[in-house]
């Protein structure tokens, strides 16, 4: 918590409580060997399965790759060798979706259109190359970090775990279906900083590494705290 004089900063109507999330992976027992089976299973599995296969790579490699690959695109490209469809699935803009349901429908539609265009060819994965469906069980828990003004908020952003940033930026919007990320909502509703809220909402979090996202959030927020020299991570 900041010990600096913060009397010149807007005090939030309600403080921001930082939460974090931890994941456990569960096997669903379902597997697909071709695109038809993939689509059929995608239609019936819980949303946590779709979430897992579009987000787990990002969280496991979050220090490394700014690419947003998902398992469906990977399997279609590298196992079924359907390069064109693989690219189509990989380029689905995850930012555009505010529910898992709509994301699921978009991926299914993309695959079904491909199947309709190519009714003759249905490639089968080689033995051992089947697509195994997993789901993410998410545990949400509070952290000790609380912010009542922008400086406290920034200090927390610098210290909280990557999982906490992930929770408020990705999961709140898409998985909990809040429509936007938690940071933008609080900054606009509780501090009245509409421009900063919009700038954060405009971030495409899928194109940063998570540490890159932390650094960018830090630099952006710093611009709205006059008179403070704050070091941000790269």
């Amino acid at each position: 918590m900041s010990k600096k004089n913060t009397s010149h900063l807007t005090k939030a109507k309600q403080p921001f409580n930082f939460y974090t999330r931890l994941n456990l992976i569960e096997f669903t027992g379902k597997k697909a060997t071709n695109l038809r089976e993939l689509v059929d299973i995608m239609k019936e599995v819980p949303g946590s399965v779709i979430y897992h296969h579009t987000h787990h790579y990002l969280q496991q490699h979050l220090y490394l790759s700014p690419e947003p690959p998902n398992d469906f695109a990977y399997w279609v490209t590298y196992i079924l060798r359907e390069d064109e469809l693989g690219e189509e699935i990989a380029s689905i803009d995850l930012c555009e979706f505010s529910t898992i349901r709509s994301l699921r429908e978009k991926i299914i539609e993309t695959i079904e259109q491909h199947l309709a265009r190519n009714p003759e060819t249905l490639r089968t994965a080689p033995p051992g190359g089947e697509f195994h469906f997993f789901k993410t069980i998410t545990f949400i828990l509070p952290t000790p970090y609380v912010a009542s003004n922008l400086l406290e908020f920034l200090e927390a952003i610098r210290k909280i775990s990557i999982h906490s940033i992930y929770f408020h930026m990705f999961e709140a919007k898409l998985r909990l279906e809040k429509g936007e990320n938690d940071f933008s909502r609080w900054i606009e509703d509780m501090l009245g900083e509409k421009e900063l809220a919009r700038e954060i909402a405009r971030f495409d979090p899928y194109t940063f590494t998570m540490e890159g996202l932390r650094g960018n959030l830090c630099r952006l927020i710093t611009k709205y705290i006059p008179g403070e020299i704050i070091e941000c991570p790269e």
Partner: peptide
């Protein structure tokens, strides 16, 4: 002890 996919602790 849980059956949901999103669990609040």
């Amino acid at each position: 002890e849980e059956e949901e996919d999103i669990i609040y602790l």
